[in-house]
């Protein structure tokens, strides 16, 4: 019998979604630990003791110098090798919002797996936004986290979430590799180009992306923000309609599936 998948949820330096993110991993069946960046960097906690590595949302270093830059630089200068080995071994890494910005700046999504050739920059609207948006997952993506999810509502809460790619060629390669995992869509399910359905002006309406192998995911929307059904802004409305239709009111939110996918995969393949 396999053991529980071990998930590390990183915190410190202004990360602030560690509590609910770790909670979502636990709900999904993982043995989740919240680990401070300093404990990871000084070797007190070892990355390679875990199956899943998650950098949650927040404002590491206040987004000073550009979101995620300082945190990513620390990760790289202290545990670059461990992180490389972690990813190479097929274990799972997940960066949510600020975590996405951080992971992207480590270069892990680069075509050579080291050099950053995509970025997340200031939203076209010029400011932070908290709103729920609609997403559509790419069913052909190799991404472990998003398997079996089609359309989903999730909250976005960021100021720097616009996906930008170095050049046309790189973008084409990313598309061919199915590395753009999820797109902001309009009410008809088509990729959204306009604000607020595409809340930041992302290229390709990209909201989530993965590395070529599909074991590392960046996501600007917060899946842990919809771990429970009652977190949906239309919870009361949906509840009333389900009740009248004689249907059961779910407890879990759709976002939890991303954590369940990760934990399921880790339990089957790694643990």
């Amino acid at each position: 019998m396999s053991r529980e998948a071990k998930a590390m949820v990183l915190t410190g330096e202004g990360i602030n979604c560690e509590y609910e993110t770790a909670h979502a991993f636990s709900l999904a069946g993982a043995d989740a630990s919240i680990v401070r960046l300093s404990d990871l960097l000084c070797g007190k906690t070892k990355l390679l003791d875990f199956d899943i590595f998650c950098v949650p949302g927040g404002f590491s270093f206040g987004d000073d110098l550009g979101s995620g830059k300082v945190f990513a630089s620390r990760l790289k200068s202290f545990i670059e090798r461990d992180f490389e080995e972690f990813v190479e071994s097929g274990r799972l890494a997940l960066g949510i919002c600020n975590g996405a910005q951080i992971l992207m700046r480590t270069g892990v999504f680069g075509l050579d797996r080291k050099t950053q050739d995509t970025t997340l920059t200031f939203n076209d609207c010029g400011h932070f936004h908290d709103r729920w948006i609609k997403l559509k997952m790419d069913p052909d993506s190799k991404c472990v986290f998003t398997k079996g999810i089609g359309l989903i509502d999730l909250p976005i809460r960021h100021a720097e979430g616009k996906f930008v790619v170095k050049d046309r060629e790189t973008l084409e390669t990313l598309k061919a590799n199915r590395q753009i995992v999820s797109r902001y869509v309009d009410e008809n399910g088509f990729p959204a180009t306009k604000f607020p359905q595409n809340p930041n002006g992302s290229a390709e309406s990209a909201a989530m992306g993965c590395n070529k192998r599909g074991n590392v995911l960046w996501t600007m929307p917060h899946p842990e923000g919809f771990a429970y059904f009652c977190q949906h802004p239309n919870f009361a409305r949906k509840k009333e309609l389900l009740k009248r239709a004689g249907k059961e009111i779910p407890t879990k939110g759709d976002g939890l599936k991303i954590f369940e996918n990760a934990v399921g995969f880790a339990t089957d393949n790694l643990a």
Partner: peptide, 22 residues
């Protein structure tokens, strides 16, 4: 109000804006 994060910590149930179009 939208530039204010009202959902961090995962406990938000009754949001500042509700209804069919939030």
């Amino acid at each position: 109000v939208r530039p204010l994060d009202h959902e961090v910590q995962g406990g938000s149930v009754g949001k500042p804006f509700v209804g069919v179009e939030n």
